[in-house]
Design a protein around this nucleic acid. Structure first.
Lengths: 226, 226
DNA sequence: TTTAGTAGTTATGTTCTACATTTTAAAAGT
DNA sequence: ACTTTTAAAATGTAGAACATAACTACTAAA
């Protein structure tokens, strides 16, 4: 008969202080540049040692949510989203299931990216893509670096900064999964060159179909795996 | 003529220790569950105080990269990717451009999700979707909660845990953007009900087209905005 | 009057010590 | 052989002390 019994406060002080501060930040309507109380004041207000407060603050510093200068104190700042992501996405540490998840995530992104591309594409973008494809033909095909250059450029073209940064984050994961499963990179019937041609003169729908065909082998592998 | 001049080591000890540990983790080929040296040993090896080590470790704890138990010590574990994202994505702090970026990201995800859905769908999933749609018709249409239930279920169906968590993360952003721009939720010609029907009896291609149509108003808005 | 320099103050950065807490493992007792 | 007790080893927390950097104000020299 232990229903309803829950641990009082299983979490560590640092964790609780982190939560408190997060709430404090949210409710305080802070803008970047706004000053914060000193460590000592926070410690006193929260009833914990300065040490614990510093551990919590250290976390926010890592996320780029606060910045510190001696004597001046601490101020709120803009969090570094991508930098933070990079810190978590260490392929060496993640288990295979998570890597697989991220691989699928990347696949989904590329399958759905067509509309954004056609909204934002410029002649200059097309030129760059053509350059990339030209280099591919000269060198050896299907190399992972070509993949990175080509698909990376696509993400960049979306004009969406977050998505672009996302791509750079997902790249190592992509390579990792490829290395694990196939030892080499595969491509569908539609090549990069074809995709560029469609992007230049074709329609959105044609590009969607083209990209689907290009990525088909990967999707097929998922289907088999299931 | 100050080119090439850079600060010697502006970073704090905690930051440097964090970097060292990250390198140590990467090179050590650690798998989840592998034990780590004690705080004292790390402090000694790095030549810093235990306090600094603890601040760095605290950061890894927040990211879910390490877990600690008393006496047992610390072990490597699977980083909590989405949880970390949530910690950085405090809407109060994000600027509007980032919110817009995330909105587009969500759009792209849903436009590219079709293949995964058809790979993983089960009769039970379809039933649940039909239930959700049925409740929609009874209540008022186009409510944001219906959107959440419906699209959320789609993410869940992918069988991709990371993607599913991503959805819950992106939801508030979606609502935020909606509130900012339209004050109400809009839908294309294809309704949720139509989508469920296609998912049940149609083809992947039909579903792709259907989803594109369903989300068309949003894509159009992006096009205008540009 | 302006400038340079100097001292003092304050908040973060770092170290050290001590003790609490929890959990494992050994030791002791039945 | 089994249970209980005790000890240890690791993290968790606290507090004090000093180092360091940066801002302030005052002072002295040009």
């Amino acid at each position: 008969m232990l229903n309803g019994i829950k641990p009082i406060a299983a979490k560590s002080m640092a964790e609780r202080v982190e939560a408190s501060l997060r709430e404090y930040f949210a409710k305080g309507n802070f803008k970047p540049g706004d000053p914060l109380p000193t460590e000592l004041e926070l410690a006193a207000a929260l009833g914990v040692s300065r040490n614990v407060v510093r551990e919590a603050l250290s976390r926010f510093k890592m996320l780029g949510i606060i910045e510190t200068k001696k004597k001046t104190g601490m101020v709120i700042s803009n969090p570094d989203i991508v930098g933070t992501f990079q810190k978590v996405l260490t392929p060496e540490i993640m288990d295979e299931a998570t890597l697989q998840d991220l691989f699928e995530l990347r696949l989904v992104l590329e399958l759905g990216i067509a509309d954004l591309l056609f909204i934002h594409k410029t002649p200059k973008d097309i030129e760059e893509l053509e350059d990339i494809v030209a280099r591919e033909v000269k060198g050896d095909n299907f190399r992972i670096n070509n993949e990175i250059a080509f698909h990376g450029k696509l993400y960049e073209m979306t004009g969406n900064e977050t998505m672009k940064q996302f791509q750079t984050l997902l790249l190592p994961v992509f390579g990792y999964v490829m290395k694990l499963e196939n030892k080499k990179y595969v491509s569908g019937e539609i090549t990069h060159k074809d995709l560029v041609r469609i992007l230049k003169k074709g329609t959105v729908q044609e590009f969607k179909d083209g990209m689907a065909s290009h990525l088909q082998p990967h999707v097929d592998r998922l289907r088999q795996k299931k």
